[in-house]
Design a protein around this nucleic acid. Sequence first.
RNA 1: GGAGGGAUGGCCGAGAGGACGAAGGCGGUUGUCUUGAAAACAACUGUGGCAGUGAUGUCACCGGGGGUUCGAAUCCCUCUCCCUCCGCCA
Length: 426
Amino acid sequence: MLDIRWMRENREALAEAMVKLNDPEAPWEQALDLDGKRRELLQQAEKLREERNTGSKRIGVLFREKKASEAGALKERMGRIGAEIAQLDEDLRRVEAAYHDAMMRIPNPPEKDVPVAPDEEGNVVVSQWGELPEFDFVPQAHWDLGTDLDIIDFERGVATAGSRFYFLKGAGARLQRILSNWFLDVHIREHGFTEIYPPMMVRGHAMEGTGNLPKFGDNLYRDAEEDYWFIPTAEVSVTNMHRDEILDPGALPLYYVASTPCFRREKVSAGKDVRGIKRVHQFQKVEMVKFVEPAAGRDELESLTRAAEVLLERLDLPYRRVAIATGDLSFVAAIKYDLEVWAAGCREWLEVSSCSLFRDFQARRANIRYRPREGARPEFVYTLNGSGLALPRVIIALLENNQRADGSVKLPDVLRPYLGDEMEIG
RNA sequence: GGAGGGAUGGCCGAGAGGACGAAGGCGGUUGUCUUGAAAACAACUGUGGCAGUGAUGUCACCGGGGGUUCGAAUCCCUCUCCCUCCGCCA
């Protein structure tokens, strides 16, 4: 959610931002109109309320002084004012509901240096690391490799849970667990993150806080009977940890990391990426979430992105950093970098991390503030998050890039402390 | 799942239709006293909306929402959360 005061004073900048985002539907003009109406009604209602407050006090006094007839007359007048207030309140309620709904559907304007383009064609590769592996045989895709090695079972996954489900088995399941642990340990030990085990189902309002609702509900799974929504990423529950809080001076920055399953309906892309574990309904992901002071936002985004990149470098996986163009930016992000890893079997760059700065957009929705110093007014925090990293796609890259002619896979040395002597699969 | 009891400011806790943004205590800030500290005493001490350049004014907020009333922390309805006991369960 945006600051309505900023919106009032920066109509042109706002209009320009919506054009850049290629979001002509964004109801920012409606929001501003409704805001004007809202304030008008509010002032009328409050003036009447003031009159009624003083009148009611007076009635109390009159009764104590036993001036019943005078009190009766005043009572009647106050009754009429009350009816007027009720009418105004009803109008106000309607206007405010519409206003709030409009505000919740206006996306976050991009940072100045985000590449401007209408869609993902305009995304810019800003850096690339590592050498693409070369083979003297035709490298296999992970759906074949994983099946032959008996570490990914697609058939039984589909039989049990439907399409886009899978079983990881033996060395495959173990590899995912170990990667998750290693990711967490690096973030905790080297980057100052605190590990969190969050709820994986949350209330609807938590989804609104992070921006997943109201606009993107059809990407989410939910409990049919109660207001429980399955998280599509740990970002949701971890960002909402500090909902409705005013953080003490000195509390920031807060760095959290959590490894959770993520549940996504992937309804938008039926028929796309159906093979393998690239796009599935349930996957494990290590997610980093930061709460910081506004001035630190951009530096924090850089160190967040680096924390994810370092993992890929130590795994010796070639990757590139992509600056997401305005038209491809998510609803809540002001700037976003994707990290894409090379997978030699399916010959694709796979997104394994997405690192975003939200400025105070989520903080306003979830009402997360901090006190800059003792006694100062509370201000909204800046939030950031980034994957570090999404597990299935890292597994894809490890299997495909490190495969050998006989179909076996050699795992990177950095995992030796976790894998022990079992450095190979197959 | 069944039966009860609760939710009041940073914390504890009173208040049961009008003088209540809310007693009292704790905590915090500032001041007096003191060489300094402690103690004692005094004052101040919540969040947000709206109007105003501003001093300020005003409105709202006693778990959330709705209702009754001239007037609600207080009465009614409803939802959420917490606690106790019983049952069940990992």
